[in-house]
Simulated scan of single mutants.
Amino acid sequence: MNASMDATDACDLRFGQVGLACVRVRRVDAAALCDELERRVRAAPQMFARAAVVLDLSHLLDLPDDGTVDALLEAVRSAGMLPVGLAYGTSETEALAKRMGLPLIAKFRAAYEPATGAPAAVAPAPRSEPAPAPTREPILAAPASGNVGAQHHAGSVRSGQQIYARDRDLIVTGAVANGAEVIADGNIHIYGGLRGRAMAGAQGDEKARIYVSDFRAELVAIAGQYRVFEQIPGDLEGQSVQCWLDGEKLMIARL
């Protein structure tokens, strides 16, 4: 018998929607970058310690040289995060990614396209998506085609699960556990408790909203603007709330 016929494959390779944190560099200062990221990790270690992040250089006036980028990557590592690639940019960014031996992550193209001629000093505030837990169950995603309605998920979303509604709203009729994520390109409606993470407007829709019946979230985000909760404010804990963007500020209020 041919040995190749009864040999076990060394691995399986699959692609899927993955939550990544994006570190948008606003000025080339490795020490300041490390300090800022360390502050974020200290504030929410369960979110950002060893988080997989993408380095976005698109809002700098000039693309840094290889040595400077290497220093920025080391600053991210020193802060306790794990850089996994560069965000989509120009052809120069692509060449830089190849030289650095890093993948180019095109997921952030729509949300992070640089404004023509805009200096870094007046760039919008960073839009960071949260990083995934180290180990996840298979992602439950349903691609949209044509004019479709909201995606429904009946029952609870367990810790380690990630539900993604592409090009549509997401309705969850159950609880979202700690360590679980629900993501939608449109709005998110949770008719149950939110103890995990909810991210609406995942492709940059700033008009998206999040509605929760029982608010106890780890994190909520809209179009990349996020709020992390170490402790839920007393007037919001366990309440029915809605989340929306007011400019670049994520607002949360009781319904």
Rank of each mutant, 00 (worst) to 15 (best):
M5L: 15
A7C: 10
A10R: 13
A10W: 12
C11M: 13
D12S: 15
Q17H: 10
V18R: 13
V18M: 12
A21D: 04
V23M: 01
R24H: 01
V25I: 15
R26P: 01
R27A: 12
V28N: 02
A31E: 15
A31L: 13
A31P: 00
A32I: 03
A32Y: 06
A32S: 12
A32D: 15
L33H: 09
L33Y: 06
L33N: 08
C34F: 00
C34T: 10
C34V: 00
C34N: 05
C34W: 00
D35S: 14
D35P: 00
D35E: 15
L37G: 11
L37F: 10
L37H: 09
E38A: 14
V41D: 11
A43Y: 03
P45R: 10
P45G: 11
Q46S: 14
Q46Y: 09
R50K: 08
D56Q: 04
L57D: 04
L61M: 07
D62Y: 03
L63W: 03
P64K: 00
D65H: 04
T68R: 03
T68E: 12
V69I: 10
V69D: 02
D70G: 05
D70V: 11
D70L: 15
A71V: 00
L72A: 04
A79Q: 04
M81T: 03
P83W: 05
G85P: 03
L86M: 09
Y88G: 00
E94L: 05
A95V: 09
A97E: 05
A97M: 06
M100C: 09
G101K: 08
G101T: 06
L102W: 03
L104V: 06
L104R: 03
I105P: 00
A110P: 01
A110S: 13
Y112F: 13
P114N: 05
A115W: 03
A115Q: 08
P119G: 13
A121V: 12
V122W: 03
P124H: 09
A125S: 11
R127N: 04
S128T: 15
E129D: 15
P130A: 15
A131R: 03
P132C: 13
R136I: 12
L140K: 09
L140G: 09
P143A: 08
S145K: 11
N147V: 12
N147I: 08
G149V: 11
A150Y: 05
A154M: 07
V157M: 02
R158Y: 06
S159N: 01
A165V: 01
R166S: 11
R166T: 11
D167R: 11
D167F: 06
D169R: 05
V172C: 06
A175H: 14
V176K: 02
A177Q: 08
G179H: 04
G179A: 02
G179L: 01
A184H: 08
G186D: 10
N187F: 06
I190C: 15
G193T: 13
R197H: 07
M199D: 02
A200F: 07
A202Q: 02
G204R: 02
E206Y: 05
R209K: 14
Y211H: 15
V212I: 15
D214R: 03
A217Y: 05
L219I: 11
V220F: 07
I222S: 08
A223V: 14
G224C: 08
Q225N: 12
R227K: 14
E230P: 02
D235I: 02
D235T: 05
L236G: 11
G238M: 09
G238H: 04
V241H: 01
V241P: 04
C243A: 15
W244V: 02
G247Y: 04
K249P: 00
M251I: 13
L255H: 14
